Simulated assay, not measured.
Amino acid sequence: MDKPCPVPGSLLQGSWSKAEPRFMNHRVPSNRRYQPTEYEHAANCATHAFWILPSILGSSILYILSDDQWETISAWIYGFGLSSLFIVSTIFHTISWKKRHLRTMEHCLHMFDRMVIYFFIAASYAPWLNLRELGPWASHMRWIIWIMASIGTVYVFFFHERYKLVELVCYVIMGFFPALVILSMPNRDGLPELVAGGLSYCLGMVFFKSDGRIPFAHAIWHLFVAIGAGIHYYAIWRYLYRPGALETKTSR
């Protein structure tokens, strides 16, 4: 009986790559990182790169509209956090896509990308905590939020990608816990927008953990982040910085 002819490894690899779906790869175990397809890589880059210039422009507008030192400081903090989120994410996904041999750089950028999320959350709260009157206990949140961001950064440094569910829970806690201070604000203008933006982030988390289950899941998560950030920016501009919004502010 004839023996089967051995198939070269390169041919097997080529056949396997052709069999792979274009828009989604197989799901990986929790201790490994999902490898996007070429199309998913491109979508991951585009869905955050598009918002870099608008975030910088929007931050500049808040700076121009600032009337005092606290408004200027808050505009800088918020603008830096907002712009950094999109810039770092775009750089990481671009390196991950086009420079796959730079594994050390990719790993560091991935850690940095996750760390920036903590500071973005803190920066998003900064204008509200700095420019609105808070209750006695809630005023401590102005510095507690930055301690939480620092703890999250340390956690990523030591336990990056080890306990993904814990990391997700940390993001959720930091995202919602400071929102409780809104209950102590005499002026609650902007509350519907803050809730709408928060809901956008929450809906996006469904896709954040759906790589390998839903095509372009991470890119869809990026879009929900952009929508949430846009809603929150609008609220900050309208109720804290827009000319004529002085009536909505109270002494700090």
Rank of each mutant, 00 (worst) to 15 (best):
M1C: 12
C5E: 15
P6D: 08
P8Y: 05
L12H: 13
Q13D: 10
S15R: 15
S15W: 15
S15P: 03
F23K: 10
H26R: 14
H26Y: 12
S30M: 10
N31F: 10
N31C: 09
R32Q: 13
P36M: 04
T37P: 08
Y39N: 10
H41K: 14
A42S: 09
C45A: 08
A46F: 11
A46V: 12
A46R: 11
H48L: 01
F50E: 03
F50D: 01
L53E: 01
L53M: 07
I56E: 01
G58T: 07
S60E: 08
L62K: 10
S74I: 07
S74V: 06
A75Q: 07
Y78I: 03
Y78G: 03
G79Y: 01
F80P: 00
L82R: 02
L85E: 04
F86D: 01
I87C: 06
V88D: 01
V88Q: 06
I91F: 13
S96I: 02
W97M: 04
K99H: 12
R100F: 09
H107C: 08
M115V: 10
F120C: 05
I121E: 00
A123H: 02
Y125A: 00
Y125R: 04
L129M: 05
N130Y: 14
L134C: 09
A138S: 13
S139Q: 14
I145W: 01
W146V: 02
A149Q: 01
G152D: 02
G152I: 02
T153L: 07
Y155M: 05
F157I: 15
F157T: 14
F158Y: 15
Y163G: 07
V172C: 05
F177R: 03
M185A: 03
R188T: 00
L191T: 06
V195Q: 01
V195S: 06
A196G: 04
G198A: 01
Y201L: 00
Y201Q: 02
C202R: 00
F207V: 04
K209D: 02
I214F: 09
P215M: 09
F216T: 06
L223H: 04
F224Q: 00
A226V: 11
A229P: 02
H232Y: 07
Y234P: 04
W237N: 08
Y239M: 02
L240C: 07
L240T: 05
Y241G: 06
R242Q: 12
P243G: 09
A245R: 05
T248K: 10
K249H: 11
K249C: 07
K249S: 07
T250A: 06
